[in-house]
């Protein structure tokens, strides 16, 4: 009788373990999948830095475009990009935050809110070149803004709006209902509660959204090409109605030139663009973390 009854506990935890070969293989595959994009990026970066780093000097940063690669520079593109991104943020952040506040705080669940929500999700999936076409027709032609900074910034603002709206809504949702009720119970109006309780707590999330949006806007070339941003600009923008170039446009133009010197310029331009992007993101992330700490989260 005792022969058919093996000691139970020992049979469960000792003895031959099941084979883990499959699990190990799967883990290896996942690791490979995770490393692959990093590897590709590293190779690309290495190539760009090796080609372009030596080209970056004061002359390169402070010169206008030229027919000769040695005397060409990114000044017009870089300044154009700064204008463009600043304007884009100035347009997209207030509109995006306003939309998010309306949808989260004021809109009743109904057809209008659903319609707006569906459209925002759809907009997020539209290819950027389509935005360029829209901008060309609407801002450049119909509203006669010409190929100006304002037209470019409005187009990019449309492009990044869904990013800001979604990030802000997410942030607003994390603000506890109890705090809204606390504010209302003190006799504040809904606007006062939104303005002084809810929005301050959502600022880190809004910043995250704005970082993503700006990063997207600063790297976009396609919509600007369609819009008709200039590739040869020997002046700096003097206002929002000025024609403009942008860094991605400049890089795009250089890569399509036959001379080897321009390829070097393009690589150097890419480095400048990337460093700017990283610095922008870094600054925003530091600001956000400081604020989160202040909110005690």
């Amino acid at each position: 009788m005792s022969v058919v009854d093996p000691p139970r506990n020992s049979s469960r935890i000792s003895g031959r373990p099941p084979s883990r070969a499959l699990e190990r293989a799967f883990r290896g595959l996942c690791l490979f999948a995770a490393l692959l994009p990093v590897l590709v990026l590293a190779v690309l970066l290495f190539d760009v830095v090796r080609t372009g780093l030596g080209r970056i000097d004061v002359q390169f940063l402070t010169s206008f475009p030229s027919r000769r690669p040695q005397t060409a520079g990114i000044l017009a593109g870089a300044v154009g990009s700064v204008w463009l991104v600043g304007l884009t943020a100035a347009i997209a952040v207030p509109v995006g935050v306003g939309t998010a506040v309306y949808l989260e705080e004021y809109a009743r669940r109904g057809r209008l809110a659903t319609l707006i929500e569906i459209n925002i999700s759809n907009l997020a999936g539209v290819p950027s070149i389509i935005y360029g076409l829209l901008g060309l027709e609407l801002f450049v032609r119909a509203l006669s803004m010409g190929r100006s900074l304002l037209a470019g910034a409005l187009t990019l603002a449309l492009l990044v709006l869904p990013i800001i709206i979604m990030a802000t809504r997410e942030a607003l949702r994390t603000v506890p209902l109890a705090l809204r009720e606390a504010g209302l119970a003190l006799g504040a109006t809904q606007w006062q509660v939104v303005r002084q309780v809810v929005l301050p707590m959502a600022v880190p999330g809004v910043l995250t959204g704005s970082i993503l949006a700006i990063s997207r806007a600063i790297g976009e070339a396609a919509p600007l090409v369609v819009l008709g941003a200039l590739t040869y600009v020997d002046f700096l923008p003097d206002g929002v109605t000025s024609p403009f170039s942008a860094l991605p446009i400049q890089i795009f133009n250089w890569t399509s030139r036959p001379q080897a010197g321009f390829a070097v310029n393009a690589a150097a331009g890419i480095i400048v663009l990337m460093v700017t992007l990283l610095m922008l993101n870094g600054a925003a992330i530091i600001t956000r973390n400081r604020m989160q700490k202040r909110l005690g989260r």
């Binding site: 705090l179 606390a182 119970a185 989260r297």
Partner: peptide, 17 residues
């Protein structure tokens, strides 16, 4: 009305900021 009738909630909810 809410300025004349104050309210204290189940869970303490001071404003964190």
């Amino acid at each position: 009305i809410r300025r004349r009738i104050g309210m204290v909630f189940q869970k303490p909810n001071p404003f964190p900021m």
